[in-house]
Write a protein that binds this DNA or RNA. Structure first.
Lengths: 354, 354
DNA sequence: TCCGTAGGTCACATCGCTGTCAAGAGTTCA
DNA sequence: TGAACTCTTGACAGCGATGTGACCTACGGA
């Protein structure tokens, strides 16, 4: 292995000078620089990150902590990851995906080992034990998502309020007055505290109310099967519904199947709008889903940048909320007929999860 | 930070003794062991991985090198990753997902830094520049997939021959005599050398011939859109076809849409069998796809174990080929009517990509 | 009684790099 | 000519572990 000592020797300088050049910590004359650089090329020198990490107490590794067991790693997550990795690389950091459990135990283990400078936390819960672990360990971190208690935490997140507002408006403008949200399944203990689900549902109730719409919300976990069942249940319990907003990516696919299996035409009989989705998934249905596109690339990048600023001791970036933007597909159109004042339907609607 | 020195001091031993205990490199009396362990608990000692790595020249980090830009990270890949990570953890290694380009440049960069002990290589091409990079660097590695030149390389892979054989047999046994393979798109320069595509196509040609079937193969990249088009093209060019085998996961979804859009009922008018897929994806269509289930969990684990054995200097595991197993869904049934001897169709079939 | 052997423990050199402190080389100004 | 600076460069002490070689008991056999 070629070490800094070898380079220094060949260039006729001390290893300190080589280090200064490499880290740009002290000025070096053009002539010396040239000699050193030549020596590095000739010897094929590559700086050893482990030694550097030990001496500088910075590994330049950022872990993206992902609860691989609790949350399936879908296309949306992949977007977060790749954009974050790219952002990190630009700043001379390695960003790697590190599978850790949601309870913080493995994360504590990891931090204790001093292998990572900072952590980007994914799939944040409103009250997330991993945040406590990170704070205790004193490891810098950024959240992609938000806890309830945000005091002084670097974070970026989806702007659920705006997203839901825009989504509802889109349907409202098409003439829909009987909508339903196929939400997350907050009864599942693994997710009762999962930010996106809680926030979307809250936002929807607020927005729907502000539009004077009946609030219909059905729980549904993020699987195609669950989506099918939810669609069937909705048709049975709220036949007046003309448009559905579906929170979960894979559930949305199931909703489409479920509606079709029940003989509904999309969008003629029912409009479907998917909240939080990536184009690849939207293209999986026929017709292609109208969706609010998850701002994964933006959030991955922003979150990583926020963390790196903290690591470098720069002024922290202000928290950012990015809305998902509407990508029209072909699953939303005007409802078939003007809504009758179906008071029975209304009552049933009010009952659901409200 | 609590160091080994602190622990040693408190326990009244030398740091060497602590190290011996920790690494189990030399025997330690029960009494000494107890004193040291108590000291560690009291001080909350956690061994610093960076220092350990520098001194021992082993970081205990395994990188799963994933070409994030070239290949989308889908559910199948996630399975590989999580099972590999688990296998690594059992052996006291960290396995992390490291995004690197397919050309080997970033990988070379990474290896030069001495941060990883070994590499699990995903999405292997038949002639993969990354393999050369790894060999040059002298870094141990295991392939999930196979290059053409396999001499002495640790690897595990899907048994494409058996998988295709079983798939064709399944269709044949249902009475199908006019099948088509919707393969990968080997004309795409990024994938012209992509192992699974090449091997599956080869295997199919062989197996189909051995069954005396006409060989119809259509290229198709791994997107839903491409799948739709491929389905339509097949209907136009080979109307005699009664069953389709689809290689790519997302293309399979598109095939189903495309067929349905063209007014075909599945499976009454056309049987569809997906090669290489995970249950979650199979559940996305209606009816649920019959598939050969990608042995992701097995391969992730086996590949990692093979690598670790190499790292530990144990006898290498023999290469393993694991077939995808049939998971019956509801998209395969007997063809509608016995096949007429449509000689025109036959001729057209022979022309396609042969 | 003496020696060989094995089990336990310790001191210390090392891993490759960082960063502090001090010193040498020019420059400028009085 | 020398004081006061500014630039560059070098020596060296860590960073927190590992692991080699030496040493120091015991114990058993001859």
């Amino acid at each position: 292995m070629v070490t800094m000592r070898d380079v220094a020797q060949r260039a006729g300088v001390s290893i300190a000078t080589v280090s200064f050049l490499l880290n740009d910590t002290k000025p070096v004359t053009a002539a010396t620089r040239a000699r050193i650089e030549q020596a590095m090329v000739e010897l094929g020198y590559r700086r050893n990150m482990v030694a550097r990490a030990l001496a500088s107490r910075r590994t330049h590794i950022i872990a993206m902590a992902y609860p691989a067991l609790e949350h399936k790693f879908g296309m949306s997550t992949a977007e977060f990851f790749t954009s974050a990795a790219e952002a990190a690389r630009k700043e001379d950091y390695h960003l790697v995906l590190w599978p850790v459990g949601n309870d913080g135990v493995e994360l504590r283990e990891l931090l204790g080992q001093g292998l990572v400078d900072g952590v980007v936390l994914m799939e944040v819960q409103l009250d997330d034990p991993r945040v406590d672990v990170l704070q205790q360990a004193g490891t810098p971190f950024a959240l992609i998502g938000r806890t309830t208690e945000l005091e002084g935490l670097s974070h970026v997140d989806i702007d659920f309020d705006t997203t839901v507002e825009d989504a509802v408006k889109h349907l409202y403008d098409h003439g829909h007055r009987e909508m339903a949200l196929i939400s997350g399944d907050l009864d599942d203990p693994r997710f009762h505290d999962y930010g996106p689900w809680v926030r979307t549902e809250d936002a929807y109730r607020r927005v729907a109310a502000s539009y004077g719409l009946p609030v219909v919300v059905l729980p549904c976990s993020d699987t195609t099967q669950a989506g099918k069942l939810a669609a069937e249940r909705l048709l049975a319990e709220h036949p007046e519904t003309t448009a559905m907003l579906v929170l979960n990516e894979y559930a949305a696919l199931g909703v489409v199947s479920g509606l079709r299996r029940s003989g509904r035409d999309i969008p003629a009989d029912m409009s479907v709008l998917s909240l939080l989705m990536v184009p690849e998934t939207a293209a999986m249905t026929d017709p292609e889903l109208t969706m609010m596109r998850t701002p994964g690339p933006e959030l991955g990048q922003l979150g990583t940048e926020a963390l790196i600023r903290e690591l470098e001791g720069a002024d922290p970036l202000p928290p950012q909320l990015v809305p998902a933007k509407l990508f029209p597909g072909a699953t939303v159109t005007a409802p078939k007929a003007p809504q009758p004042k179906a008071s029975a339907g209304r009552r049933a609607a009010r009952k659901a999860r409200s």
